[in-house]
């Protein structure tokens, strides 16, 4: 079970929760369960969300496994120059 932190921009779409407990093995499972629990998250998850696992940001790789005890946070998908 992970306590998934949400950045402020997502919290109003998740009943104003700052942290959501989710059981998941991969980024895909994590995002799927987040969407199921809070359908309002579906739209931002489509293209505006990245997943930080122990401080390393994953923008695309759904197959990434979530290490036991990892710190997980959904953050804004970034733009670069």
């Amino acid at each position: 079970m992970f306590d998934v932190k949400l950045w402020a921009g997502l919290q109003h779409l998740a009943d104003n929760q700052k942290v959501v407990p989710i059981e998941a093995r991969t980024i895909r499972e994590l995002l799927r369960k987040m969407e199921n629990q809070y359908p309002g998250l579906a739209e931002p998850i489509k293209g505006h969300v990245a997943v930080s696992i122990n401080g390393v940001i994953y923008r695309n790789d759904w197959s990434q496994e979530l290490p036991k005890g990892a710190e997980i946070m959904l953050i804004r998908r970034l733009a670069g120059g």
């Binding site: 932190k5 950045w7 930080s52 122990n54 401080g55 390393v56 940001i57 710190e71 946070m73 953050i75």
Partner: peptide, 11 residues
Amino acid sequence: QSSYGPIYGPI
């Protein structure tokens, strides 16, 4: 813990 949220790995 970074100011934008996540906890840093090696930096």
